[in-house]
């Protein structure tokens, strides 16, 4: 199949979209197709002086959250519940032009091409997204009984891979789904319950400090999340913060 990638390029030399046409195999992953584009750029470097496209990737199996890019208007591309690395070229048609852009948010500045700086998420996580207990040998699995419903819910929120698709899809570039998932998954477990008030206050403050927008309930985050995290996380986050405010 022949496809044309129209990719946002941003470095010292260039700032704008550039088109690259390649012959791709429909069984290639999207990132493998970008690898093919980069091989072509390196091979024909006189024709493409802007050099190979910089893009984030790591595990290429849908769990690390690195492969952040907006493909044809959708974070992680057109398939639901799929990270970019798990997207395959068979999702596109022969002759398609595929528009590829980086996440756009003040809190996620572009470093180069499709690579953005997501340190803001790390800062939020460091503000309270942990449980302060002594580490050591793994505790006995049944030492602290947790009901099935609670365990399932906590696991659903813990599935967040911190990719930033929620921010990318949100009309306000808000990170509320990320913060909600991190806050709620710890707050509902006995291990995280102890620090829940300090945690939610610190993480929301770090979120706002980083320059993310606020939630206006468009639900685009839930639709874009490759792990299908529910916007219920945001509703529960709001209750967590109000609870903390009343108790402080």
């Amino acid at each position: 199949m022949r496809v044309t990638f129209k990719v946002w390029r941003e470095n010292d030399e260039v700032r704008g979209f550039r088109s690259y046409a390649i012959e791709a195999n429909e069984h290639m992953s999207f990132l493998e197709a970008l690898d093919v584009v980069n091989e072509m750029i390196i091979r024909e470097h006189e024709k493409y002086p802007e050099g190979p496209i910089a893009f984030d990737h790591d595990c290429r199996e849908g769990i690390c959250g690195m492969c952040s890019m907006v493909i044809d208007g959708h974070p992680h591309g057109p398939r639901q519940a799929t990270t970019t690395c798990q997207l395959h070229m068979r999702s596109f048609g022969d002759g398609d032009e595929i528009l590829v852009e980086p996440w756009r948010a003040r809190a996620f500045p572009v470093i180069k091409d499709l690579v953005v700086d997501r340190t803001a998420f790390d800062t939020i996580q460091q503000a309270g997204g942990y449980v302060s207990v002594g580490t050591g040998a793994a505790p006995d699995a049944n030492a602290l009984p947790i009901g099935k419903t609670v365990a399932d819910e906590a696991f659903d929120y813990a599935a967040c891979i911190g990719c930033g698709a929620c921010v990318a899809a949100c009309p306000n570039a808000s990170g509320m789904l990320f913060v909600g998932a991190k806050v709620v998954h710890l707050a509902i477990l006995p291990q995280g319950n102890v620090e829940r008030s300090q945690r939610v206050s610190a993480m929301v403050a770090a979120h706002d400090e980083a320059g993310f927008g606020g939630c206006t309930n468009h639900e685009e985050c839930e639709a874009a999340c490759p792990k299908e995290i529910s916007v219920d996380a945001i509703a529960k986050l709001n209750v967590e913060l109000m609870r903390a405010a009343v108790r402080s």
Partner: peptide
Amino acid sequence: KLALRNYAARPQGYASLKSRRTGVYAKTM
């Protein structure tokens, strides 16, 4: 306060960002 903050949160927009869920009522609030 929220509108100004939300506006500032994305200084550079997308060439194309498609909606999956939101509707005209939400966008025109």
